[in-house]
Amino acid sequence: MERRQLEYFMAVVEHGGFTTAARAMHVAQPSLSHAIRALERELGGSLFHRLPQGSALTSAGEALVGPARQVLRDLSTARSLVREVLGLSGGRLDIVSQTTLAVDPLALMLGRFHRAHPKVGVHVVDPEHSRDVVRMVESGECELGLVDEAVALSDLSSHELPEQEMYVILPPDHPHPQTDTDTDTDAVTLSELAGMDLVVTPRGTATRDILEDVCAGAGTMPRIVVETAHRAMIAPLVLAGVGASLLPASMASDAALRGARMLSTRPRLLRRGHVVWRSGPLSPAAQAFVDIAVGQQSRP
């Protein structure tokens, strides 16, 4: 079994067919097909159902996806380690992150990472659900993940990130909900938040889970007026007067600059994230990123 065969196999898996995979790998389709057939002969069975429109994995092919992905990841890590020893630079870092953690703190962390390692390319994946972060790291699709503390981490190694405060954003003309006399700043009680019309993300996302917990604590069901997976819509929907929403500080601040009202909650809603990775040696790029995450914890 050769590395190139596994690369071709994964290309067909990811692109859904031999023609598109060959195009993506910049090889002739007969060469790619020959390599896959040689791999199938070596393994003793078909890996793909050849269909008129593309291809589909057989059960044997499905069993190979995880190991093939991890072998390719390990080879990439080995190559990077050798390059590091030889003083070379470059490579790629794959990170999967929940959206709110990607905005903050991932963006700032990647800024520091890029300044220290400008030749390393970074690919950030945005999963639909929180649990997908853990799955993609466990399967080797991404080497690192950023996930909310509420998500079970299985057997992954992790580092806890600094806590984030969540803020309520309201339409500009929304009635003033409450003034915190201790700090003289706008604030919303959790019971008030539970009674508002809400713009929410789908079930399984971190902010949706927080809002459902708030409503459950108040003994009520969320009054959802819009549910959207398009997080870029949230601030415009709030500004249009559709309802209130809950966002981390950086995203709430951006909404406030556009005219939304940004209010704290009483008590404060806090969340923590984790950087997660598979046990074992990391690529130099991933290790450098983890070192930045650990160092961030001690920053003033």
Rank of each mutant, 00 (worst) to 15 (best):
L81N: 13
R271I: 10
D254E: 13
G217I: 07
R266W: 09
A260N: 00
D126M: 12
M233K: 09
Q178D: 10
R208C: 03
P171Y: 03
D180R: 00
S130C: 10
H159W: 15
D184C: 00
R73H: 10
D148E: 03
V168A: 11
V27W: 01
H34Y: 05
H114D: 03
Q5P: 07
S80M: 07
V65R: 06
G121Y: 04
S31C: 04
V226C: 11
V82H: 00
P30I: 10
P52M: 15
V147I: 11
V120I: 01
L72K: 11
R41M: 02
A256Y: 03
R83G: 02
V13F: 00
V225P: 04
L47D: 01
A285C: 12
P267N: 01
D184S: 04
S279R: 15
L75E: 05
L88I: 08
A218P: 07
G90N: 09
I292R: 08
D254N: 11
D184M: 00
S80R: 06
A216E: 11
A218F: 05
L75R: 08
E165Y: 01
H129V: 04
P175G: 03
V225D: 04
L101P: 13
L170V: 12
Y167K: 10
E128F: 11
G44E: 02
L247R: 01
L146R: 02
Q98E: 08
V71Y: 00
R299C: 14
Q297G: 02
R266S: 02
L156W: 06
R271N: 12
A293R: 14
R299V: 07
R131E: 00
R73Y: 06
A285P: 09
T183D: 14
R231E: 15
A78G: 09
L257W: 11
M251Q: 15
S250K: 07
P177Y: 13
E165P: 06
V199N: 03
V85R: 11
F48L: 15
E160D: 14
L246I: 01
R208L: 08
G243Y: 08
F289H: 09
D197E: 01
S97F: 01
A218Q: 13
V27D: 05
L282D: 06
L153R: 15
Q287I: 11
E149M: 10
I234V: 03
Y8E: 11
R115N: 15
D291Y: 06
S250R: 05
E160K: 12
R258D: 14
Q98D: 15
L239A: 09
R37S: 07
A56K: 07
H274A: 01
A249I: 00
L39D: 13
L247T: 00
S59T: 08
S279Q: 15
G91I: 02
A21P: 09
T183F: 14
A21F: 02
P284W: 01
A35I: 04
I292N: 04
P30Q: 13
D184K: 07
R278S: 06
A78S: 04
